[in-house]
Design a protein around this nucleic acid. Sequence first.
DNA 1: GGGCAAAATTGGTCTGACCAATATTTCCGG
DNA 2: CCGGAAATATTGGTCAGACCAATTTTGCCC
Lengths: 244, 244
Amino acid sequence: MRHSTAEWIERQIESMLMDGRFPASSRLPAERALSVLLGVSRSALREALQRLAARGLIQARQGSGVYVTDTLHGGSGSPWHQLLSAHAHLGHDMLEFRQTLEVAAAELAAERATRADLARIAALVKQLEQARRNDDEDAETALDVDFHHAIADAAHNAMFSYLQANFVAMHREHIADNQAGLRHGDARVADALWRQHQAVWQAIRDGDAKQAGRRMRAHILFVRRRLSQQGSGQPAAPRPRPSP
Amino acid sequence: MRHSTAEWIERQIESMLMDGRFPASSRLPAERALSVLLGVSRSALREALQRLAARGLIQARQGSGVYVTDTLHGGSGSPWHQLLSAHAHLGHDMLEFRQTLEVAAAELAAERATRADLARIAALVKQLEQARRNDDEDAETALDVDFHHAIADAAHNAMFSYLQANFVAMHREHIADNQAGLRHGDARVADALWRQHQAVWQAIRDGDAKQAGRRMRAHILFVRRRLSQQGSGQPAAPRPRPSP
DNA sequence: GGGCAAAATTGGTCTGACCAATATTTCCGG
DNA sequence: CCGGAAATATTGGTCAGACCAATTTTGCCC
């Protein structure tokens, strides 16, 4: 089956987007110029641009030009990127949602972890301890991610694993982009985080779901407070409650 | 920001696709006819069709016509549908995830509901009561959705509202597609659901977060068991737990 | 240097002509 | 009457040009 001219143009432009000539937010040449450059009619070019726009790769502004979105370069083709970018200004709400996720995962992990799960988490805790001893902040951060990931997997619920791998990990990156690391060279903070991880681990190992949930909640609250102190975004919005 | 004509047309056609007039594999009216029908130029119509084609909803064949793919009716037109279909075989895990969401939302709603939130939920509960009295199953189902939605909004967390509106609602539709309604003409089930809704509402009204969470958990568990009895999918997977 | 109006540039829509591919109808022969 | 081929009609695909709406740039004046 032969592809149409519009599809061919789509691919040409896509190549242009991918080879670095047009980074996110940059402006493509004008339609009239582009149609001459590619040797096609402006109509066919417009049709191709509509295709690219429908896929979120570009955005046209009348009187101004056609701009490259951050979709291709930022990978926001996935629903989680879209969700994240749509709510990036709601730092507190997202942290609260993450708390719900991670607390539930810890409770379920305490109930359901297999021997293999427990061995995996134990190994990570051991490595976290070693990294703490070495005051190796980068390793701690990476192992921190792995630790939470292992817990989500130990919950034996595909949704939690999926959300941890996609949403939570992405949100952590998003936060990291906007500030120094959580530990920020502060050994007291790093020590506190380590103790919290250990406490969560012990509750999971002991199969105590309530305790695991409580300790994970305390851990995430600590992180949330820590992030607030660092000015991670707007302060927590006042939470409404009427007098009964 | 005003939407372009092409985008407007896209939406019109999308509506046509969704309201059942054009099932998968059927042929849309010819471009010339459609442009007259919608009162637009053929160029603008073509641009809209290119958008729909780029999203996989339609496919044009020169000399033949424009055909509806199975993408929309298979539901994979939106990222959420993609996520849902990617996990549709994990019915139990998704229900468990939903439980986590809805329990957390109920707790937060109990803490945070404004007077307006409470009035909204109260009105819905009143309508639910009326629907129960009339044994109007369709109304009950619709109000059930609204009730849960109102609770998520009363949590005053944009993430919970968003997930309720997008993910949970879609999941309910997905389940509904595959089986008769939850109530299934069974007044005892409908009565039980009504009582559970009322219990959740009373805890929220009283500002009792723990009770709200507990009652919501009981409600969702009831629903999950009900769905399992109806053969909603694979039975709950055995959940691992090693001996310590 | 700042402000305002005019001109230029940009995307958006329309019209009509024509081309390429397919579907349908018509015609002819057995 | 049936089947096959040719002719015609219908369909999507592309082009060119005109004009409109929105934004940006330029030029002029104070």
